[in-house]
């Protein structure tokens, strides 16, 4: 029996059931139109008129800021990936001081706001250790921050590889290196990929906080522009849109990996 009225049937789907692409597109479009309409109406009610004329005027600086955000994020991703894998391995180390150091690092980073870390590392450690290149400092700070989250992602996946497989690997005669290469690494990659891609989106967004130490990335660029032209709504709306340009495709990739993982198990 199908009790859904014919009129709303194009807009419904059972939970968990696949949705036809045409139907999905139609519904997505409807939602987007509705959201834009609400935003538009709200802006109008508040008496704000949006103006994006500044884009042409500042396009070089905007592009530079955009590139800086992408560059800092990419560099931080690479470093934090290496750091995260090392720390996750370190959390299982036989040497207790090393194990607890890794544990403490993850706890402190995950337990404090990024802005605290930015100020702390930049002003205190940066001054003490003589790192006065803001971009470099920014990359180090963001890598330290993201590394703790990646360590947690990797550690979770490591724990989910059951002891039975590791014992079987020993039983068939694999060395430790062969076990790592043929048994642990492939499963680790498959299992962490969805969460890791999600982390890439986080890094991109979190890099905006480096504006507080005046790294001229996207957010800082907009802050500087709006400080002179006072077009805050236009500026920050554009800023949000530019981050979405980067993060939306990444989230789509993450979903894709998630689905592929479902099939694999």
């Amino acid at each position: 029996m199908n009790r859904t009225p014919a009129i709303i049937r194009p807009f419904t789907a059972r939970a968990g059931a696949p949705v036809r692409p045409a139907k999905a597109a139609l519904n997505y479009l409807a939602v987007c139109v509705a959201v834009i309409a609400v935003v538009w109406a709200s802006l109008a009610a508040a008496g704000i008129s949006l103006n994006f004329d500044f884009v042409a005027q500042y396009r070089v600086r905007l592009w530079d800021g955009f590139c800086m955000t992408v560059g800092i994020s990419a560099a931080s991703l690479v470093i934090s990936l290496a750091l995260g894998v090392l720390v996750a391995a370190g959390q299982g180390a036989r040497l207790l001081p090393l194990r607890y150091l890794c544990d403490l690092y993850v706890k402190i980073i995950r337990g404090t706001p990024l802005i605290v870390q930015v100020y702390f590392f930049y002003y205190i450690i940066g001054t003490a250790w003589g790192i006065d290149n803001r971009v470099l400092a920014g990359i180090v700070i963001l890598s330290l921050f993201s590394g703790a989250y990646i360590a947690e992602i990797v550690r979770g996946s490591l724990l989910s590889i059951d002891a039975g497989q590791l014992e079987a690997a020993r039983a068939v005669g694999f060395t430790r290196a062969q076990t790592l290469r043929y048994v642990v690494a492939p499963q680790l990659v498959a299992r962490t990929l969805p969460a890791l891609t999600g982390q890439v989106a986080s890094i991109i967004k979190d890099s905006s906080l480096l504006s507080v130490i005046a790294v001229i990335e996207l957010t800082q660029t907009i802050r500087e522009i709006t400080a002179t032209n006072y077009n805050f709504f236009g500026g920050f709306l554009l800023l949000g849109a530019l981050y979405l340009v980067l993060t939306l495709p990444i989230m789509a990739i993450s979903r894709h990996f998630e689905k592929r993982l479902d099939y694999a198990h």
Binding site: G164, Q165, E167, A168, A171, V172, P186, Q187, H265
Partner: peptide
């Protein structure tokens, strides 16, 4: 070796 839970490599 054969174990109770087979120990096959999942991937």
């Amino acid at each position: 070796f054969v174990f109770q839970d087979s120990g096959l490599f999942h991937h």
